[in-house]
Simulated scan of single mutants.
Amino acid sequence: MNLGYHQALYVLPFDHRQSYVTDMFHFKPPLDATQRDQVIDSKQLIYEGFRQALTEGVPFDAAGILVDEQFGAAILRDARQRGCVTALSVERSGTDEFEFEYGADFASHIEAFDPTFAKVLVRYNPEGDPALNLRQLGRLKQLSEYCQSSQHKFMFELLVPATDDQLARAGGDKGTFDRQARPLLMQQALHVLQDAGIEPDVWKVEGLDLHADGERMVQIARRGGRDQVGCIVLGRGADEAKVRAWLTVAAGVTGFIGFAVGRTSFWDAVSGYRAQTLTRAEAASQIAGRLREWVGVFEAGRLSHRPGTA
């Protein structure tokens, strides 16, 4: 299997589960049938917004969805039937340590939906708990090897949470940690993960404020013959201004092929629909508009960095 994915990739992620259920719906798991249906319907609403965006100019070949099996099985099947790029989350939600959602049976669940990407979210700090990191590396290598043997692309969402010591060195300020420490830790994490035999086709990474940090991320992602590996930037639930800034930085770096912006795209729309301040059509249109906005920002940023442009 050829490693990498280098075409444009504009993802609407709505695979949120534990935090989505508790923060959006204020439900306490386990859910009853009525509660489950409400969550499923809200994800269908987000998908309706995605499909509307495709009719309004978001390029079909570049657009994709990331959703979970628990609440989005019907969406995954429909999107695949339509020929959309799909990504299926395989990690257990609501845990700090990466574990498979379906344990040793993870492969059969991927095969059942045959997504473009098997996606994993991992919290990995190279200066964190060594035993925790080692356990995660073992599971991640298992997934990486499965993806390579099964012809499924592998999307790796890397989050680097600050340790207590790192946050203290940043004066207790997460913004300072993000600017001064996180970029280097992200780079170190990529090195460690690659050296452990973990080979994503796409790295889904937290936003960077400096062009040079983005370039360094791509250099590491593509080192050692990994020339076709792509990077996309995630939104991390940030406000519109921050998302725009991260998209603009990423768009200017060759090797960043797109983005995955979720909560900033759909949260207000779903909240408004649940509060009955938005109709379903209005909520879907708002989601579609957000996705169009992110595509516009990214493509404008990419265009402005082409040779010969102002």
Rank of each mutant, 00 (worst) to 15 (best):
Glu127Ala: 13
Cys147Ile: 03
Pro126Trp: 11
Ala74Cys: 12
Leu190Tyr: 12
Phe100Pro: 01
Leu159His: 01
Phe117Met: 11
Glu69Phe: 12
Gln151Thr: 02
Ser149Tyr: 00
Val120Arg: 11
Ala181Cys: 10
Asp68Glu: 15
Thr86Ser: 02
Phe113Ile: 06
Gln142Gly: 02
Leu184His: 12
Val85Thr: 15
Leu143Asp: 05
Asp61Met: 07
Ser144Asn: 06
Leu193Val: 14
Glu91Arg: 07
Gly64Lys: 08
Leu167Tyr: 11
Gln187Trp: 08
Gly72Thr: 13
Leu88Glu: 09
Val192Met: 09
Glu91His: 07
Tyr102Ile: 00
Lys119Gln: 12
Pro126Ile: 14
Leu121Glu: 11
Gly64Leu: 11
Asp105Phe: 03
Phe117Gly: 08
Thr176Phe: 07
Val85His: 09
Phe100Met: 03
Arg139Ala: 06
Lys153Val: 00
Ala87Val: 04
Tyr124Cys: 13
Ala73Thr: 14
Leu190Gly: 10
Phe98Trp: 03
Phe177Trp: 08
Ser144Tyr: 05
Thr163His: 08
Glu99Tyr: 00
Gln194Ile: 09
Ile110Tyr: 00
Leu76Glu: 14
Gly83Cys: 14
Ala104Phe: 01
Glu145Lys: 02
Val160Phe: 04
Ala189Phe: 11
Ala189Asp: 09
Arg139Asp: 01
Met186Gln: 14
Gly103Cys: 04
Glu145Arg: 04
Arg92Cys: 02
Gly103Val: 01
Cys84Arg: 11
Pro126Asp: 11
Ser89Arg: 07
Asp68Phe: 06
Gln180Ser: 05
Ala170Cys: 13
Phe154Thr: 00
Arg77Cys: 11
Leu185Asp: 10
Phe100Ala: 01
Leu193Phe: 09
Arg80Glu: 10
Arg92Ile: 03
Tyr102Asp: 03
Ile75His: 10
Leu76Gln: 15
Leu137Ile: 13
Phe154Arg: 00
Ala62Leu: 08
Ser108Gln: 13
Asp78Arg: 13
Gly94Ala: 03
Asp173His: 08
Val67Leu: 13
Ile65Val: 15
Cys147Val: 00
Gly138Asn: 08
Thr176Trp: 05
Gly171Arg: 10
Tyr146Val: 01
Thr86Lys: 01
Gly175Arg: 05
Gly128Tyr: 05
Ile65Lys: 12
Val122Ser: 13
Arg179Ile: 01
Arg123Trp: 11
Gln142Thr: 12
Tyr102Ser: 01
Ala79Thr: 11
Met186Gly: 10
Met186Asp: 07
Asp173Leu: 07
Arg80Cys: 09
Arg92Glu: 13
Gly64Arg: 10
Ala170Pro: 09
Met186Ser: 14
Gln188Ala: 10
Val192Ala: 09
Arg169Gly: 09
Glu97Trp: 04
Ala87Tyr: 01
Ile65Leu: 15
Arg135Trp: 00
Ser108Cys: 01
Ala162Thr: 07
Phe106Leu: 05
Gln81Pro: 13
Phe156Lys: 05
Gln187Thr: 06
Ala74Arg: 15
Phe113Thr: 07
Ala131Trp: 02
Gly138Gln: 12
Gln142Tyr: 00
Gln70Val: 15
Val85Ile: 13
Gln136Trp: 05
Phe156Val: 02
His109Ala: 02
Glu111Ala: 15
Gln194Tyr: 10
Ala62Gly: 07
Phe60Trp: 07
Gln194Thr: 11
Asp114Leu: 04
Asp164Lys: 10
Phe154Ala: 03
Gln148Ile: 01
Lys174Val: 08
Asp96Ile: 01
Arg135Ser: 07
Asp105Leu: 04
Ala131Glu: 11
Asp164Glu: 13
